[in-house]
Write a protein that binds this DNA or RNA. Structure first.
Lengths: 214, 214
DNA sequence: TGCTTTTACTGAACATTGTTCATTTACTTT
DNA sequence: AAAGTAAATGAACAATGTTCAGTAAAAGCA
C-alpha cells in the first residue's frame, strides 16, 4: 500500500500548501480582499484545484480558524505553570492580547469575521454534522476550557468576589476581546491617541483584575 | 434663487433616499452582501446615479456610520435624567446593548467592519481633511463624551475605586463592546448556549458595575 | 417662443469576484 | 502497450465595484 500512501501524503501536502498560502495572503490583505484565484496563483495551481481540496472559500476559512485556535492555545499554555490562579489569569490575558497584536488577521478570522459564521444558521434544517463538525471545535473548547477552569479556581480559592463562573468567564473574555477587537477594527486611534502608549492595554488588564479580587 | 434652492432640495432628498435604501438593505443582508446595483434597483435608479451622490461604496458606509452614531446618541440621552452617576452608567450600558441588539448591522457598521476604516491609514500622505473630515466625528465624540463624563462623575463622587478616567472609560467600553460584538459576530452560540437566556448580558452589566464600585 | 447650455441620469463596458464542469494530463494497474 | 483512474486545468457563468460616453430633461437666454 505504499503508492496509495504516498498519494495520500501528497494530497495532504498540497492541502497544507493551499492553507499556508491562503493564511499568508489573508494576514497580509485580509479575508475579503483575497480571491480564490490569488491563492491558486500564489502556489502556481489553477482555480479549480482549490475546489478539489476545499468545498469553498468558507471551508478554507474554517481550516485556518482551527489552526488559529491551536496557535492561541500554544500561547496560552505558557501560563499553565503559574500556580496562583489570579496571576495565571493575568498571564493568560497578556498572552491572549499578545496573540491578537501579533496576528491581527488571524484573530479577526477567529473572533470577528461574521460572514462565514452565517452558514451555521443558514444550515439550520440540514443534518447536524453539516452544520459544524464537532471536531473543528475541540481547539476552541480547549482554549476556552482553560480560561473557564482558571476562573473557577479563582472563585474556589476565594480570590474573587463573585460566585458565578459562567458570568465571570463571560465578563472577562468580553473585556479582553473588546480591547482586542477595538484595536484590530481601528476604533481606538481617534478616541485614545495614547494607545500608541503600549501600556493602555496592560494597565487595563491589571485594573480589571483588581476589580474582581476581594 | 428659488429654482436653485428647489434643485438643491431635490438632490438632498435623493441622497437621503439612497442612504435610506442602503441602510435598510445593509441591515437586512449585511454590508458585504449588498451591491451598489441592489441599492440602485431598490429605488429604481441606475447604478451610475449612485456614484453621482457618493464617491464609492465606502462613502455610503461613512454616511450611515454617522447616522448610526446619531441613533445611538438618541438612545443614550434617555439616561441623562438619572442623577446618580452609577445608575446612569448602568442605564447607558443597557441602552448601548439594546441598540446593538436592535440594529446589529448598524452596530457592525459603526464598530466592527474594518474594511472601510482602512482608508484612514491608506490616505496617510494625503491632506488631513481627506483622511477623515472632522465633522463626521462630532456624532461619535458626542456619545463617547457622554460616557467619559459619567465615568468622571462616578470617580469624582467617590463611587469608584479607580482614579484613572481614561483607563476606566476604556475598560467599561471594551467590556460592553466585547459582549455586543461577540454576539453580533455569532461567537456565543457554541460557548454560551444559555445566551438565549436574555439575562446573561444584563447580569454581566450588573456584575461589572459591582466590581468597580467601592 | 426657439436655441443653447447646464445638469441629471442612463446602461453598456471593464476588470474581478466565487464557483462549476467538460476536457486534458499524469499516473497506476493490468 | 492498453485500459482505467485520479488530479489538474481553464473556459464559462453570474454577480461584484466602478467608469464614462451618450441621452434626456431642465434652465437660462433670445
Amino acid at each position: 500500500m505504499s503508492i496509495a500512501d504516498r498519494r495520500e501524503k501528497e494530497k495532504q501536502e498540497l492541502r497544507d500548501k493551499i492553507l499556508h498560502a491562503a493564511g499568508k495572503l489573508f494576514r497580509k490583505e485580509g479575508y475579503e480582499k483575497v480571491s480564490v484565484r490569488k491563492i491558486a496563483n500564489a502556489i502556481d495551481y489553477s482555480v479549480g484545484t482549490i475546489y478539489l481540496y476545499f468545498k469553498n472559500k468558507d471551508d478554507i476559512f474554517f481550516a485556518l480558524h482551527e489552526e488559529g485556535f491551536n496557535m492561541l492555545y500554544e500561547k496560552m499554555i505558557q501560563a499553565i505553570p503559574i500556580a496562583h490562579p489570579v496571576e495565571r489569569l493575568r498571564e493568560m490575558g497578556r498572552q491572549y492580547m499578545a496573540f491578537a497584536y501579533e496576528f491581527p488577521e488571524t484573530y479577526e478570522l477567529m473572533f470577528i469575521q461574521s460572514a462565514p459564521m452565517n452558514i451555521i444558521e443558514e444550515r439550520m434544517g440540514k443534518p447536524a454534522e453539516d452544520v459544524m463538525p464537532p471536531e473543528k471545535w475541540v481547539a476552541v473548547m480547549r482554549s476556552f476550557g482553560m480560561l473557564y477552569q482558571t476562573v473557577q479556581e479563582c472563585i474556589d480559592q476565594g480570590y474573587f468576589k463573585t460566585g458565578d463562573v459562567n458570568l465571570t468567564t463571560f465578563a472577562i473574555w468580553s473585556s479582553v476581546h473588546g480591547m482586542a477587537s477595538l484595536r484590530i477594527c481601528k476604533r481606538l486611534e481617534k478616541l485614545f491617541p495614547s494607545h500608541l502608549n503600549a501600556t493602555l492595554i496592560s494597565d487595563t488588564i491589571n485594573m480589571l483584575l483588581v476589580q474582581y479580587q476581594k
